[in-house]
Design a binder for these strands. Structure first.
Ligand code: MN
Ligand code: MN
Ligand code: MN
Ligand code: MN
Lengths: 228, 228
DNA sequence: CTATTTTTTTAGACAAGACTAAAATTTTGG
DNA sequence: CCAAAATTTTAGTCTTGTCTAAAAAAATAG
């Protein structure tokens, strides 16, 4: 085995964010994109990219962004696994709301222990998805993405869809969804798309009929169930 | 309310260790004692003591050690509460051994969340002692010390005592105690103290008769039950 | 009570991770 | 294609927490 890499919290965060920005297509990630997401200045990003490149965790070419190496990616996935398992723990064992867990998980994801995460996984009975519907990587780093997920904002009118994920970045969105009774697993009937602002006339199955702004609809992942 | 103090992990560790070294009698703590326990150089300690004194978390006088202020003490106790609750979680929910939890708890004790620790406390059903028999401070920072605890090394011969705590600092001690079947709550019959090396001839009630070195006996806390 | 030893502090340095300002490179629009 | 704009990098600074070496103060021993 190679020597034990001990990364700082900061380095771990960079790897995680590079992974997230590069998406499933594994695109190269630009300096500015990282600066935005990490709330730091571009110059700080450049410094860190050099450091990560020295450690062979990313590929980096001046003025051309970066991409994770195999090693960097496996560390990123490990952090994401920890983050999502902790979120699941907080919601299902400590009864946190889904809007309250992300910030705490940002801290917990950096706890280093050979044993802890696998025990936690077992304790939670090997959950496949976190409280926001995002897939939890398994012990070997495999991520099972939902095949047919689309944004609610893009679903056709006169269809029934099921909510499979919500973007976790905004606490106020999550609170709003709580208020209107929209959860993972909710059925949503999409009746009409208002041309003026792209908002949707919908019915939450078993709940209310209402309008959802396009912005909200862009932050909800759904899968098609049937035509109405 | 005063402004939210955000301390670094390092600052929190210093406060915790000052609290631990100063003991129940709240003695002043010397620079070298801190350096030993924190595995840093005395010069680093001096630097940090100045910083903590500036923040009114300790009283510090040159060449005369330090002591916690009320504010510093309440932060120290909070860290210790978190540490011991996490250790309890690891043992009672994730089935860690008592020798495996301290290092992980050293990390977990720094997780900042208004809600997390109280939820965890509730989830664990408000435990009074951690896996090593140390008292867990309550939400308000009150610590209920066991009144009549003594070191096994100091107990009289021909007595029956009960194990109420073990020093957690050495993982190898804890493993050894596992091996010989000595747990919290075990009864111990103390038969004889060997003058040559201070070792004790004992019987673990329900277990084996054996000799314990003085060093081991110094690391076990017991309470007197009865004369034999 | 003074000389030696021990403890503690000061001074100066360094690495990590951030920032600002300025320079270099790439991209874009006419 | 070229000038202006946007992006990225470099250079230099700062803070935190650590270190070593040297100086200062306190404790100890004869
Ligand atoms: Mn999250
Ligand atoms: Mn999540
Ligand atoms: Mn511990
Ligand atoms: Mn303990």
């Amino acid at each position: 085995m190679a020597k034990e890499e001990k990364l700082t919290h900061s380095e771990e965060n960079y790897l995680k964010v590079i992974f997230q920005i590069s998406g499933q297509s594994r695109d190269r990630v630009s300096t500015n994109a990282l600066a935005d997401k990490l709330c730091t200045k571009a110059s700080s990003i450049t410094d860190m990219l050099k450091k990560l490149a020295d450690k062979k965790l990313i590929g980096y070419k001046k003025y051309n962004g970066c991409e994770l190496t195999t090693k960097g990616e496996s560390i990123a996935v490990e952090i994401i696994r920890k983050h999502r398992l902790w979120e699941t723990f907080l919601v299902s064992k400590l009864s946190f709301g889904w809007d309250e867990v992300h910030d705490v998980a940002e801290q917990l994801e950096h706890i280093r222990s050979l044993k802890l995460i696998d025990k936690l996984d077992q304790f939670l009975d090997y959950p496949k998805f976190d409280p926001h519907g995002d897939p939890i990587p398994d012990k070997d780093g495999n991520i099972t993405y939902r095949k047919s997920k689309i944004r609610l904002a893009e679903s056709a009118v006169n269809t029934l869809v099921e909510v499979v994920s919500v973007d976790e970045d905004s606490q106020s969105l999550l609170k709003y969804l709580d208020e209107i009774g929209l959860k993972l697993g909710s059925g949503i009937k999409v009746f009409e798309r208002i041309p003026f602002d792209g908002s949707l006339k919908i019915e939450i199955v078993g709940g209310q009929k209402m309008y959802l702004s396009e912005k909200v609809a862009e932050n909800i992942g759904v899968r098609f169930i049937e035509k109405l």
